[in-house]
């Protein structure tokens, strides 16, 4: 199993993307899709990437729903800042000490922070485990640190333990 299918999530995603592109559920399409997914994910395994281990699928889904709600909220907040004729806000860099070390958890955190309007991941110092982000409207630095750590980092720690 681990030898022939080293990246099951990647294989599943390939199959789904293939079926979406082909727009059909005919048997030959599915068979070809499965073959492609197996071969390509096997080839990816040859690159020697670390395996993805999702420990808690439920937490992941809850996290994604939460991120979507945050995206909607911060879209409105950033739109307000841009549209208001005399905007009053302070932007700046915020340094956050991180606990997570798993590369996939870090990648997901990077996507979450950058996809949310108003915050962007700038750099990560893996030796000192320090994350540097830029925030469009820093009201209070400590609030932002607590926000990122509690809302995103804690679930990520549970998912990629």
């Amino acid at each position: 199993m681990t030898r022939w299918l080293p990246h099951p999530w990647f294989a599943l995603w390939l199959l789904v993307a293939w079926l979406l592109l082909q727009q059909s559920l005919a048997a030959p399409t599915i068979v070809l899709g499965i073959v492609l997914a197996l071969v390509l994910s096997w080839a990816l395994g040859k690159l020697g990437l670390p395996r993805v281990r999702v420990r808690s699928l439920g937490t992941l889904l809850v996290l994604l729903a939460r991120v979507f709600a945050d995206i909607v909220r911060s879209n409105i907040a950033v739109a307000k800042i841009i549209v208001s004729p005399w905007p009053r806000y302070t932007s700046g860099f915020v340094t956050i000490p991180l606990e997570i070390t798993s590369p996939y958890a870090l990648a997901l955190l990077a996507c979450i922070i950058t996809a949310t309007p108003g915050t962007i991941w700038v750099s990560h110092d893996s030796r000192r485990q320090m994350l540097l982000i830029h925030v469009l409207d820093v009201i209070d630095e400590a609030t932002w640190i607590a926000h990122i750590k509690q809302r995103y980092e804690q679930p990520l720690l549970r998912i990629f333990r």
């Binding site: 995206i71 909607v72 879209n75 950033v78 739109a79 800042i81 841009i82 549209v83 932007s91 860099f93 950058t114 996809a115 949310t116 309007p117 108003g118 915050t119 962007i120 830029h134 469009l136």
Partner: peptide, 27 residues
């Protein structure tokens, strides 16, 4: 469109970089 307005209007690169995310997410 609001994202593009921000791209034009905000005054430093680190601020402007936030603007197009409006168009790439909810928009």
């Amino acid at each position: 469109c609001i994202g593009s307005v921000g791209l034009l209007r905000l005054d430093s690169f680190y601020r402007r970089v936030h603007a197009p995310t409006l168009g790439t997410t909810l928009g």
